[in-house]
Design a protein around this nucleic acid. Structure first.
Lengths: 220, 220
DNA sequence: TGGGGTTTGTCACAGAACTGTCATGCGTCC
DNA sequence: GGACGCATGACAGTTCTGTGACAAACCCCA
């Protein structure tokens, strides 16, 4: 739980512990993010109005590396806030004061959907002369570090993670851009840019190949 | 959407269609369940107070066979109802009148969590010297990769998946081309092209044989 | 707060690849 | 022999891809 108001934190903690939950709490986003990185909880509750990094930012930060279910608990019931929080990556949004019963019911509902542990992302993916380190955020080609933009990096990670498997432009749009629809040309363009950086001869790609009519893949 | 109030159904439908959703609606749980069974939607909205089978029961019924995300939209904001709906298997609960923006944001959040359809696709089909890998989008003949077009690939996959079984031109048109009618010669042409690639001697096909009067098959 | 450089997404376009149709020809079956 | 089913080469229209240009959004720094 990330919540700066001591009284609310205490009250919620007690209520949840009563229900059998084990709660760990932090008063700031920084503290919470650190804690989650060190010892991942299986659900995160977060307030929106926090000192320093606010709740929205906190969620986005969390989402960059973590697929943990996130529930916002906020005093504000403004539609705009709700939408923004959900867009930032939250899974649910409750308005304070929230009934404990409702909170725990929503937590249970969410946990039903939670993906069975994201198969511990490997620290390093090696594809021939190319090494991708998702956690470190770096890519090495023949041991030399490449400078990729964030989009390129995510695209590469996604493809590398499914090496040997064709990913359609739609799948890539969804996983890399989180678009549910959109212009597939966008993928082409970024693939093109990525090739400039990871291919020895971008004209005839070896590492990131087109599977005509289906999508792209990196040969295993 | 399962909602008995005509006006609300219409209003919600319009609002959602405005956002790009395709909406199908039913006025009763029975109707809705049937519709979902016949042609599964990827998300279900359901009201709680319905004539006949009520919303709770409807959700439980749905859940027996379907993992589709379910969002309750109800006029009652009683904690007890919320908890009961979530326990019944709902994923989210909104109180009417709900802001369209919030609804769509919650739908998006939910869809992020929705499990991808259990793609019961075999990773590899082996037919003698021929290997078909649907996921990788590749076909190997004696270990060597072939370059097939998408149509050829789909045609081969379909035939390989039903190896030993004759598929009529009509069946192939339906499954590969998704045509419900059409010139059967089309199949011949593509079979011919495919043979050029997978047969050692396309003149007397061994792997993809004609069954005169019936169709084509790949011997098991 | 205001540049200046990056990164992103959109568009238009050209070349390559693919598709569906047709006409022709061959073999088979009755 | 004729009817029929099938194979195949040619071809024109369509689709798919890669790319350069460009503007909007973003980021960093003074």
């Amino acid at each position: 739980m990330i919540e700066d108001d001591d009284r609310i934190r205490l009250a919620l903690t007690l209520a949840l512990e009563d229900e059998g939950y084990v709660v760990r709490s932090a008063a700031t986003a920084e503290e919470g993010l650190l804690s989650q990185r060190r010892e991942p909880a299986d659900t995160v509750l977060v307030d929106l109005m926090l000192p320093g990094i606010d709740g929205f930012q906190c969620i986005r930060e969390l989402r960059r590396t973590d697929d943990v279910p996130v529930v916002v608990i906020s005093a504000r019931d403004d539609t705009h806030d709700i939408v923004a929080a959900l867009e930032a990556g939250a899974d649910d949004y409750l308005v304070k004061p929230a009934a404990t019963k409702e909170l725990t019911a929503r937590l249970r509902a969410l946990r039903r959907r939670a993906r069975p542990l994201p198969a511990a992302q490997p620290a390093e993916l090696v594809l021939g002369e190319l090494e991708v380190r998702p956690l470190a955020g770096e890519v090495l080609l023949r041991g030399e570090q490449l400078t990729l933009t964030r989009t390129e990096f995510r695209l590469l990670s996604e493809l590398a993670e499914h090496a040997g498997q064709v990913l359609s432009r739609q799948q890539l749009l969804q996983r890399v851009w989180e678009y549910d629809f959109g212009d597939e040309r966008l993928v082409d363009v970024h693939v093109g840019r990525l090739r400039q950086k990871i291919e020895d001869n971008p004209g005839s790609p070896q590492r990131l190949v087109t599977v005509r009519g289906l999508g792209y893949k990196m040969p295993r």
